[in-house]
Amino acid sequence: MSPTPHRSVVNALTIDVEDYFQVSAFAPYIRRDEWPTRECRVERNVHLILDMLDRHDTRATFFTLGWLSDRYPALVHEIARRGHEVASHGHGHERVSDLTPEGFRQDLMRAKASLEDAAGQAVLGYRAPSFSIGQDNLWALDVLLQTGHRYSSSIYPIAHDHYGMPDAPRFAYAARQGLIEVPPTTLHLAGRNLPSSGGGFFRLFPYALSRWMIRQVNEREGQAAVFYFHPWEVDPEQPRVAGADPKSKFRHYLNLSRMQPRLERLLADFRWGRMDQIFLPTAETQVQHA
């Protein structure tokens, strides 16, 4: 029998609410003006996730696109009604690295207005699409602060071909006065940071390895983990994107049928909660200062 996980630490469960046709890897194959014509499966998948969280008496943070909130306000309202935090994933799933400061501000404000209208609650958190805040565009943190956000989860301290800032702090820190950065979880091993926070890595790695990495962060370092996944990852029947390159297809479709059972195990093995409730109330005493 495997050892019982460390359950005194409450980890942050986060869902990046976007549909399969909006992921960055498929951007070369699906134009934005095609989005309204695609079969949208986000309602089905989010309701599946909400029901799963109810079964485990778990609350989470849903980083949601304003584009989806505009079209499915009742879905965003339902997320909030069930006790979850509604946070921002931007409006149009544009990488921050592709935007000017003013363009980023407009994207943030448009998303914030839509999400707050639908959820009936203030939007305090933000996660950049594809973790696209890094060394070259740290000005984005100032814009987040100016637009009323209190925390970000956008700087991934790993080396990756699409994103990452390997030298960034691994745990929550004051990125600006009044703004906390809460990175996705990594495990420092053999001189490098290993991704330990979900997404495609969770589908790629054996569950036992993901479980072990989170336990190390909880037990050895005494820190809360930040885990993320997407609604399309619990949908093995989603339409296939024609013409996508093999690498993108591998990353997107790998082990989709195994995702929900693995999530059920994860929810049972660890304690989970909302980002705002874990990191904001005691921010002054818990965060490191960069």
Rank of each mutant, 00 (worst) to 15 (best):
R262G: 02
E43W: 06
M52L: 15
P169Q: 06
E116C: 13
H47A: 09
R176N: 11
L280N: 02
G243M: 04
S114D: 08
N255H: 15
V96E: 00
V143A: 07
G125H: 12
L179P: 06
F21I: 02
L267Q: 01
E237Q: 15
E34Q: 13
R251F: 13
A159K: 12
D136N: 12
D70N: 11
F229S: 09
L13H: 01
M109E: 13
A242N: 09
T100K: 06
L99H: 04
N255V: 06
F26A: 13
W272Q: 00
G222Y: 12
H91G: 07
Q238W: 07
G198Y: 01
E284V: 12
N255F: 08
F279A: 02
E85Y: 12
L108P: 08
P183E: 06
D269I: 08
V96S: 02
A190W: 15
E43T: 10
Y228F: 15
Y253I: 01
L189T: 09
W232M: 08
Q223E: 15
T58V: 15
A119Y: 04
R81N: 10
P236H: 09
V96W: 01
V42W: 00
E219C: 11
A113F: 09
E233Q: 06
L266I: 11
V226A: 01
W35C: 00
V123A: 04
W139Q: 08
V42S: 02
A225Y: 00
D107V: 09
A113M: 05
R32A: 07
R274L: 03
R262W: 06
Q223N: 12
A80R: 14
M165V: 05
L256R: 04
T185F: 02
E237N: 12
L65Q: 07
R211C: 10
H77Y: 11
I79F: 09
E237W: 08
I30S: 04
N45E: 04
A140G: 07
S197E: 02
A242W: 07
Y253P: 03
A74T: 08
V96H: 00
V143M: 06
A27R: 14
M275L: 14
V234T: 08
E34I: 03
L53P: 05
G273H: 03
V96N: 00
V182H: 00
